[in-house]
Design a protein around this nucleic acid. Structure first.
Lengths: 189, 189
DNA sequence: ACAATAGTGTATCAGTTAGATATAAGGCAA
DNA sequence: TTGCCTTATATCTAACTGATACACTATTGT
């Protein structure tokens, strides 16, 4: 079976929000979407070229003074249709690499206090994420009042909120478990 | 800065549980660990060779009758020490590609009922996961009574349980939101 | 009896993805 | 005036996935 190339559809999804350059796509991803999707330049530029060749997007060169020209891409009618087709395909279970859990599963081989430190760092990062999401959430209705995508952006945000709260609850539970274990059992050997 | 090669440490982590072959590693990952870590043969076999060359693991050939020989690898003292060093390194925020959310963010461009169908499928998969985790959880104390890694396996399991419950709550919430939206607003155009 | 399917085991390939860097010009700050 | 940030396009290598090849055994179906 043909391989998927999810990057292609991710980039088309970005273009569905409006015409933009490779640079715009990267910036938008980093600023707003990083927590559930990311793409590298190594994917973005070749794929934009490909989309153009396949007639799924159209390129316009915007000249600028003092700055490099912008290659702006706009999703074509065929592009939007292809995106819609892809939208209907069933989603497979996400494959993940959760490093914090991997570092935990050989916990009997490493120093107890190192494990606790790792979980504490994880919890702190998730706490920051919660603050971040909560800030966006509070300003949401004002910022996106006129945006037809607002309800869908809200759903994406909620995904982050639910997961982050789950991670925080897990961190607290796990720290409690680690602190209740006799340290001797967790020592190197 | 040098790239990470997380696969290398993941494979060492597997070997920390006991000597095993590439085939064993793959099977163990698929049966027990898939939901938070995975490796392909394309990584496993070359890395096992590399670990041997670097003195981090030792290879023993086990002859078998009627079956292919097994190349069994055992983590060396240096290997365990390298693994411990890696364990102490801080974990970066996980990079993810959550396809279901990507398919939702251009929701205003696609048919409403397709979105609902996607979320329902997602919810059903997570429901299955919850049943799976719950089964393991219930038989846990009996199965791993003598295992010194039991508490750490329990923590990994809890991670899955927390996330899965969060996903289910989000699915229900999102379905409710989608069903409350006027279908006309979600139509193609 | 014979075919199809599944298991054990090692190994590699092509396509996909991540992360870093090259290039080049302008602005801005120490 | 050196150094860093921003805008913008582009490419390269290393890492990684998913599929497949090979070879032999074991089980199940008809």
């Amino acid at each position: 079976m043909a391989r998927e190339n999810k990057s292609k559809y991710a980039i088309m999804a970005m273009l569905s929000m409006g015409p933009m350059s490779g640079y715009d796509i990267k910036k938008l991803l980093e600023e707003r979407v990083t927590h559930f999707w990311n793409e590298s330049y190594g994917q973005i530029y070749p794929i934009l070229k490909l989309l153009q060749q396949e007639g799924l997007a159209e390129k316009t060169v915007e000249r600028q003074e003092g700055k490099p020209d912008r290659n702006v891409f706009e999703l074509s009618a065929e592009g939007l249709e292809a995106l819609r087709q892809w939208q209907r395909l069933p989603v497979a279970k996400e494959k993940r690499r959760i490093e914090i859990v991997l570092k935990l599963v050989f916990g009997s081989k490493v120093a107890h206090e190192d494990l606790i430190l790792q979980i504490e760092r994880f919890r702190d990062m998730e706490q920051e994420m919660l603050v971040f999401y909560t800030c966006i959430s509070e300003g949401f209705d004002l910022e996106f009042a006129a945006d037809p995508d607002a309800p869908f952006k809200r759903m994406a945000l909620n995904f982050g909120l639910h997961e982050t709260r789950a991670h925080l609850a897990w961190s607290d539970e796990t720290l409690k478990m680690l602190r209740n274990m006799e340290p001797s059992k967790g020592q190197q050997g």
